[in-house]
């Protein structure tokens, strides 16, 4: 995890984001989100609203989205809570980007299962493609981050790019995915291994084999 710091407060940042307000759709969504919580507990909505704000920023500048300080302040005002409390949340969770980010946020898992299955090759492939850890490419398309476990160990190695996971990767497949994304096409999400659908065992089931074709009651055999 790279060191995270909010984008410094500057007149340019204020000029660019000082007027931030919900778009029509998001305004309706925000009302709907706040309404999920009891009256007076509107602060509970801080996490979904930060996500909404991040997505709106992303839509505005065609990136994955991030949270400039004026936007954080806007959410604080919207929820009538101290801005420091919102900043605490935004800095705690790494899925909130607090500094500018590229069109695609490539998060390569480097935790043990992925590492054993070749995440070093994935990172090398990214590097060969011009991506640098903790940085955005000059054209603003990719930001590369190495992250800790994303819970896809059964189909390691994996990367998460924006809202999608790409699993069972090889250096070739990750390069292909990056090429497709850069070209504006949507590659296949999920597992990239041929013949695999989700995270079922490669080469067929090794346990609960009677369940493959139909429902089977194992209880009598225990």
């Amino acid at each position: 995890m790279a060191d995270r710091h909010p984008e410094p407060d500057s007149p340019e940042l204020r000029a660019r984001w000082g007027q931030f307000a919900w778009t029509g759709d998001n305004a309706a969504k925000a009302i709907e989100i706040v309404a999920r919580y009891p009256a007076g507990r509107q602060r509970s909505a801080v996490m979904p609203l930060l996500d909404l704000a991040q997505r709106q920023v992303g839509a505005e500048e065609n990136t994955q989205g991030w949270l400039p300080l004026p936007v954080i302040e806007y959410v604080a005002t919207y929820l009538d809570m101290p801005v420091i409390r919102v900043l605490e949340v935004a800095t705690f969770y790494t899925m909130y980007n607090i500094a500018p980010i590229g069109r695609f946020h490539v998060q390569v898992c480097g935790t043990t299962p992925c590492m054993l299955r070749g995440s070093d090759d994935i990172l090398a492939a990214c590097k060969a493609r011009g991506l640098k850890k903790g940085h955005t490419t000059a054209d603003g398309v990719f930001t590369l981050t190495e992250v800790e476990c994303m819970g896809n160990c059964a189909s390691a190695p994996m990367v998460q790019i924006n809202d999608d996971n790409y699993e069972d990767l090889t250096a070739e497949s990750v390069t292909h995915i990056l090429d497709e994304l850069a070209a504006g096409r949507q590659p296949k999400t999920g597992t990239q291994a041929p013949g695999r659908h989700t995270v079922e065992p490669l080469g067929g089931a090794t346990s609960l084999t009677a369940m493959v074709t139909g429902n089977h009651d194992y209880r009598g055999e225990w």
Partner: peptide
């Protein structure tokens, strides 16, 4: 007066006022 907060997480936690 909510002005001091704990930013970031884990070992990287930092106590700070807003900005």
């Amino acid at each position: 007066v909510d002005e001091i907060g704990a930013l970031y997480r884990g070992e990287k936690t930092q106590i700070s006022t807003y900005l």
